[in-house]
Every structure is written in structure tokens, then in C-alpha cells.
Design a protein around this nucleic acid. Structure first.
Lengths: 121, 121
DNA sequence: CCCACGCTGAACCATATGGTTCAGTATTTA
DNA sequence: TAAATACTGAACCATATGGTTCAGCGTGGG
């Protein structure tokens, strides 16, 4: 059994699991944009885009501010450090496992060779 | 308009958006495990765990092999480089935007100071 | 003052997700 | 050979997701 309940990573990874939302984030990396701008660029209704932006907001990747009738979206407060750290930890583990496998293969290869030598005698 | 359709990132980020699945991956980073092992550790039916493992498999984070009646799970072929790259790109963008904001604040501060000087005259 | 603009909320829809139970099948083990 | 083990597939359920339409509502320009 193990500790459960890290809802922050849940939200950010879920937010990133949609191509449209990743696109929106990339766009906002270049310049701020209104809901209308984004809806146009991603060929979607305002309502649909508003939902995506909502998801990104809740995950902290985007923040918005309404001035007059325009809601302007920009990159949000979160820098995704936790997420990056998770992925890096995974890769380290993956490399370890891979190295381990390498060592095993090496050992088997060595063993084979010495077996060959034995057989030649 | 923009290119859509990067289903690989979709699958891996979606796979990582669930705490149980992240837990499974972490576990497999420590040692291989059967479905039964994982189901026990995460307090879930075999069927439920099998589904999670299926999701991870489809995303390439886990690979499995059935020997006799036991299915053994281990870390999969993908090293999540694309995913890490995406996050790093995001962070770079984020830092740029932040620096930009800093510069603007700096400028405003400078302006204020010179205004003060002007007012003192 | 009026109309176009930008957005929003509610309702709806189809499909996906995260879980279960139950009834198998195949493989060990005693 | 019988019983226990390990998994699997189908069916089901509740809720979430990704989208739409439609009817507003506040704002701003002419």
C-alpha cells in the first residue's frame, strides 16, 4: 500500500493531455490572446475554447483577466517544476533499469564466451 | 490555424494524469511486478489494475509479458524524452515571459523615480 | 441611443474513464 | 486429477470530457 492523493500533478498532466490545450499554451508562450483569438486559431466555438482555458487555469498553466468585455489569457503562475521533476525521476529510473539490463547481458555474453572456451578444450 | 494531431503526447500525458498509474510506474522503477502484486499494493481488483496497466502499455511507459499464468510488468520502451522536451520548452517560454515582465516593472520604476525628480523641481 | 461585439451559462450529446462484479480459461501444485 | 492461482472478457455503472447550440448580458463605438 502507498500514499495516494496528489491532485496537482493530476490536473496539470490532464491539462496537457489534449492537443488543443497544448497548442493554446504554446500560443500564449508567444503572446497573450483573447478567447476569441484562440477560438479562431483553433477553429472552435467561444464556449468550447473557454472550457479549455478553464481547464488550463485550474491547472495553473494559464491565468486570465477580464477587462471590459475582453478576457485576456496569458501564461499562468505554475512553472511545471514538479512535473518536470517527475519526468526526470522517471528517466533516471529508466536509465538505471536499462543499465542493469546491459550488465546482465554483458554477464551472459561473458559467460557464453567462457563456456565456448570451456567447450573448445 | 495550426497543425493538430500529436497523439503520442496525448497518450503519455493522459497516462500520467492518474495517481494510481504514476504510482505503478514508480513501483516498476524499483522492481518488476505482476498484476496481482500491483492490484494488492494499490488496493484494487485485478481487472481494475489490468486496465491501468493497459493504459500505461498503450502509452509505452510499461511493457508486459505473460509467462504461464503470470503477467509480469516492467518499465516500457519509452523514455519520455518528447514529454520532457515539451515541459522544458514551456519553462523556457515561461521564464522569457517572466523576464519580460521584470523589464517592464523595472522601466516603470525608473519612470516613477524620474517623475519624482521632476516633481521635486 | 442603439447595435455589434465578446463573452458566459445552461442544456444537451456522444464518448471516454475508472471502477466494479461475475463467469469463465489456462496453469500450477498438492 | 482436483483444487487453488492468475488472469481475462463482458457487462455494467457513475462521472468526466470535449464538443455543440442557444439565449442572454454587459461593454463600447458610431
Amino acid at each position: 500500500m502507498v500514499q495516494r492523493g496528489t491532485t496537482r500533478l493530476d490536473a496539470s498532466f490532464a491539462a496537457l493531455s489534449d492537443a488543443t490545450r497544448r497548442g493554446v499554451v504554446e500560443q500564449l508562450g508567444r503572446s497573450d490572446a483573447s478567447i476569441t483569438d484562440l477560438a479562431e486559431r483553433f477553429q472552435m466555438t467561444l464556449t468550447g475554447m473557454r472550457k479549455h482555458v478553464g481547464v488550463l487555469e485550474r491547472a495553473g498553466l494559464v491565468s486570465t483577466k477580464k477587462v471590459g468585455r475582453v478576457r485576456t489569457c496569458q501564461l499562468g503562475p505554475r512553472r511545471l517544476e514538479e512535473e518536470t521533476a517527475w519526468l526526470e525521476r522517471y528517466r533516471r529510473r529508466w536509465d538505471e533499469r536499462f543499465d542493469e539490463l546491459d550488465r546482465v547481458v554483458d554477464e551472459l555474453t561473458r559467460k557464453e564466451k567462457s563456456d565456448e572456451r570451456r567447450n573448445r578444450k
